[in-house]
Design a protein around this nucleic acid. Structure first.
Lengths: 276, 276
DNA sequence: CGCTGTGTTGACAGGTCTCAATATAAGTGG
DNA sequence: CCACTTATATTGAGACCTGTCAACACAGCG
């Protein structure tokens, strides 16, 4: 697929036309779609880039809560764009323990770690009812060939993912359970705020206590102790699936890590193809 | 810089001609150079790609052991290719603790995490006498514009880095000190073996006990207990800076993580530019 | 309605950290 | 090259954090 051969019928492949308004032949409007939030976080995309992006996706796929999208060891690399819902990627141990590496929100790319390996290192599970758009490998090749600026943005996003992992790694390696949990909460809040700037201090999160514990690298038993402590100290309350944050400064102090701001210094990106 | 404008005088920018034989105008020979090991791990580079690569680097810079290349908070993104020696990137906490995120070996790219952020999230320190080649941002742009296949390989390398972080994250989150250490040793061995296939079971590593502890996410005090245990169990011995591994299977069992094999399925990569 | 998975709490054990002291190695300046 | 200083390495003892085990309440779901 090249820009020259793009047809309007291609546009429906990645995004459901019915969910969009104004209609899909006005690609700039797609900037609002959550699945483009990550891509447009660094720099505004051009209409031509949006057209290309949309031409690359496959038909949507829907998963129920708990359904597995990718299993550890799968030897066929498969990537998706998360359109709707939350998923979690995790590494399981032979002794039954597991570590959730990351929870994915709409706009995140799923399965990219499998691109580099012969077998997928992670399993991806739906935390909620979920809609994904497959991203065929050939589409990635097309993107690198025809849209160098988009490719560079994809690279930046991968780098951003690494930074998030670095922060988690530092937290798990060098802080207490309470501190781990604090940095986890802040990171999730930061990510949500990136797509919802007007996010308040009350958040609904589709995460069970087991998920939370597997994310923070502690047991559910101890997670409860941590939650109690933080509630007693009026830092936050987490009832059911509703998180309410009272004291961001206290959380930040506990975490020991600074907030991460995306760069705006993207002058080095190659020029966009097509009309800007 | 485009391929058409490449001059031989460009070739000396990235690699010291005197260290190479056969001479630099035979670019295929450069595949042997350690700094290209990572890039050529997925697919053999074409002469044109090698030429472009060499044209992108800046003048070498040498660091003494302990010297700092990048500090946390630096607001100017700066990337390098590690030519010689080892470095470590770490995140420090206000209370004085620090977590080493990764040790870098020749061929690794340094500083890429700073590309995505307004401030560098990590500090990079030389563990040995070190030689780096700066990689200006403009060069990255050129690479994405003129060498789509190289750009895609760069992306794959970033993904590979993420997988290594994922494994560390899982280890730090869900295993004991001994298990953390076992997976760390295996990962380092795996990385070394990727560039030295004939690597034996005796390795010299320029890592102090403090470095090791900061990598494994434990204290030096406890690291000593772990080392004793593993030596008593005839799994490995670590005298001074020399590691000798006796029982890989035992290490693998402890780690709980499988070995990671790079993919050979790179048919999706865009075509190489220039003569293949 | 029973069943299975999740959430919560208590008591206990064990792993890891902290503190402290000493031995050894590395680095520095004369 | 040596004496001095500093950083690193090692070991022990005690405290504390966190995991394990167990029991029970509760919710979701067939």
């Amino acid at each position: 697929v090249t820009l020259a051969t793009l047809r309007h019928s291609d546009l429906d492949l990645m995004y459901d036309r019915s969910r969009l308004s104004p209609p899909v032949h006005e690609p700039a409007a797609l900037l609002d779609h959550p699945s483009l939030a990550r891509l447009s976080a660094f720099i505004k995309l051009t209409p031509a880039e949006l057209l290309l992006l949309q031409s690359l996706g496959g038909a949507h796929r829907t998963l129920k809560r708990g359904e597995v999208l990718t299993d550890e060891g799968d030897d066929q690399p498969r990537c998706f764009v998360l359109i709707e819902g939350w998923t979690a990627s995790a590494i399981a141990f032979p002794n039954g323990k597991r570590q959730i590496i990351k929870v994915h929100m709409p706009g995140d790319m799923l399965g990219t770690p499998s691109l580099a390996l012969a077998q997928s290192p992670e399993s991806i599970t739906a935390l909620t009812k979920t809609v994904v758009a497959p991203m065929p490998l050939s589409a990635l090749g097309t993107l690198f060939r025809d849209a160098p600026r988009l490719a560079a943005i994809l690279y930046l996003i991968s780098v951003e993912e690494r930074v998030m992992l670095m922060d988690r790694l530092a937290a798990l390696g060098r802080s207490s359970a309470k501190e781990r949990f604090a940095s986890l909460v802040l990171q999730i809040h930061e990510r949500l705020q990136r797509t919802s700037p007007d996010l308040g201090n009350v958040i609904d999160l589709p995460l069970s206590r087991i998920d939370l514990a597997d994310l923070a690298g502690i047991t559910t038993v101890h997670l409860n102790r941590v939650l109690h402590d933080l509630a007693d100290a009026n830092v936050l309350s987490w009832k059911g699936k509703t998180l309410e944050i009272f004291d961001f400064a206290a959380l930040r102090d506990m975490s020991g890590l600074p907030p991460r701001h995306l760069t705006s210094d993207v002058g080095w990106l190659p020029p966009a193809h097509g009309p800007g």
